[in-house]
Design a protein around this nucleic acid. Sequence first.
DNA 1: TCTGGGGTCCTAGGACCC
DNA 2: TCTGGGGTCCTAGGACCC
Length: 423
Amino acid sequence: MRPIFALVDCNNFYASCEKLFRPDLKDTAVIVLSNNDGCVVARSKEAKALGIKMGIPVFKIQTQIRRYGIRIFSSNYALYADISHRVMTTLEEMAPRVEIYSIDEAFLDLTGIQSSTILVEFGQRVRETISQWIGITVCVGMAPTKTLAKLANHAAKQYSATKGVVDLTSRERQRKLLALTPVEDVWGVGRRLSKQLQCMGIHSALELADTPAKAIRQQFSVVLERTVRELNGESCIEFEQVPPTKKQIVCSRSFGSEVTTYQQISAALCEYVSRAGEKLRKERRQARVLTVFIQTSPYKENKPHYSGSLSGELSLPSDDTRDLIELSIRLLKRIWKEGHGYVKAGVMLSDFYDIGTFQSGLFDQPARYSNSQSLMATLDRINHRGLGRVFFARQSASRDWAMKRDYLSPAYTTHWDHLIKVR
DNA sequence: TCTGGGGTCCTAGGACCC
DNA sequence: TCTGGGGTCCTAGGACCC
């Protein structure tokens, strides 16, 4: 049977979350900044209308912010994750199969629904329910492939006459919309590819769809070939209800200000390693390879840029933060260079195994800690419950490297002290 | 002054094997 | 003088996504 995908996507998600508990900001332009208050990562529709570009460093738009009274927020992931969870559980109540694709998007499997009227009615119902229950506006696009569903969603956002729902199951409607869509708006076509395609005279999504898939494969790769097939209604990207297991875990962050001492950077690094360890245990996996990296700013023209990174292997895969910290410090010592002002550091875990499945060699050392599983589980439980944080000694140096979050909103839905008060 | 973080997949090229 | 062919594995780098 021909599949039908629906893509549900929250409008201006982070900005909408910030407005949710602030009715006074209803018609105000709102932007949300990346970690460290660096770049613009979300804009309300009013901010978009003012021409604020996605990804622009905030210091470059200070004049507009002042002139138009744009309200700024630091990223508040506790809030966004909780609102996202509400949206996703609502979708799971409404549709048989849901693939959570990102914090603000999900694919629904609607295969089997033949009638366009029923599809559109369903889309409207999703929209109304989420708006009523959670207060977030979503758009819905429906089509026989994921790439076309993305396109349908895009159209639902762009054209108000659609009332936020577009059914793109008919071939004629597909071709009509493809002709109106610039090639760079196609899912899977980024800046580089769209430039190359334009050089070849391919400007619209329809022109890409009408290029023979074989030729695209020869000149580019199977990835773009799949996109071409998907644009023509041939589903190549499958529905994934269960998220695939992770292959790597990264924890990295820019510092609030330049870091120059080894003590600071090692404390920051241990903090990131601890977070990475938590994520690893949540996945119920153990890692054998760990990579550490430290960087100076690439934007400073008068100073030499330094970027050091080094990987190392544990003798046995581990999910014990003590093992991970020890290895990361060994690696850090080898890439640390005195005299630089560092702006970013991070750690990456890879080469994962299920707990206890690694085949160790005859001469390998046995695991170093016998209390590992129970200690880590206890640590995670305490830190998760928010009963006060427990951490390793190396993390405890002063946190003067911590990121900037000057415009943070309250954790309205996840912290008792931040709950909204109604008088 | 001030430029995010966390992922995935694919390809080319080198090392190595028989 | 003549110097193969086919395969795997690994890594770095590039491209994309949100």
